[in-house]
């Protein structure tokens, strides 16, 4: 997993609430057995017409946002299915951070496994950054994970909370499975205990 430390990038505004995983990556693109290559289909049904032409009004089709690395989104971003194809598609497009007031639980966890930082801010703070993002490519938003801050293009600084374990893994680009395997003795001990107490499992 790629490390996440700091990011200074163009932010695309998507104020719609409840943007679901079917919007982020429609089901026809889940038939892949790879993790890469989904960026071209990110937000596919909002981004392209049925015959594949770009819809010019869609934010990521506008010249200013084609290289966006941050999304500023409405409440409850990523609701719906558990498909990790959603963060894979975001990452493949080049998105490394999302800013919203809230996320669906599974999507939120999936982001951290893929080097994407989902940032939770207060509604009034998201409003400021949404307006900032609407200014286009000249307005760069800065994210500093170590300091847990987001800085708007005009220098307003907002702090965010993040779980210490998730932060540690993201900053160092750590593989969860490797870390857990270091605790194999605890897992073995649990299995011995559990199989005595609940042998039917």
């Amino acid at each position: 997993m790629e490390k996440f430390t700091t990011l200074s990038g163009i932010a695309a505004p998507m104020p719609l609430v409840n943007i679901d995983t079917d919007m982020i990556i429609p089901k026809q693109f889940l038939k892949t057995i790879k993790r890469s290559g989904l960026g071209v289909n990110l937000f596919d049904e909002m981004r392209y017409t049925q015959d594949g032409a770009e819809i010019p009004d869609f934010v990521l089709n506008k010249p200013a946002y084609r290289n966006a690395q941050i999304l500023v989104a409405g409440d409850n971003f990523g609701c719906g299915s558990s498909r990790e194809h959603a963060p894979w598609a975001l990452l493949d497009f080049g998105i490394r951070a999302v800013i919203s007031t809230s996320y669906a639980d599974i999507f939120y966890n999936n982001c951290f496994k893929n080097g994407i930082l989902p940032i939770v801010l207060k509604p009034e703070e998201v409003d400021v950054l949404m307006k900032d993002a609407e200014k286009g490519a000249n307005a760069r938003i800065e994210v500093d994970l170590a300091a847990q801050t987001v800085t708007s293009s005009d220098g307003q600084v907002f702090s965010f909370e993040v779980d210490s374990h998730k932060k540690h893994c993201l900053i160092n680009g750590l593989d969860d499975i490797g870390l857990t395997m270091e605790k194999a003795a605890s897992i073995d001990a649990f299995e011995s205990r559990a199989s005595a107490q609940r042998p039917w499992v």
Partner: peptide
């Protein structure tokens, strides 16, 4: 529900973080 990275984690360790 869990994502695919967590599926791999459970397959490998039978646990979830």
């Amino acid at each position: 529900g869990i994502g695919t990275s967590e599926v791999e984690h459970v397959l490998a360790t039978q646990t979830l973080i």
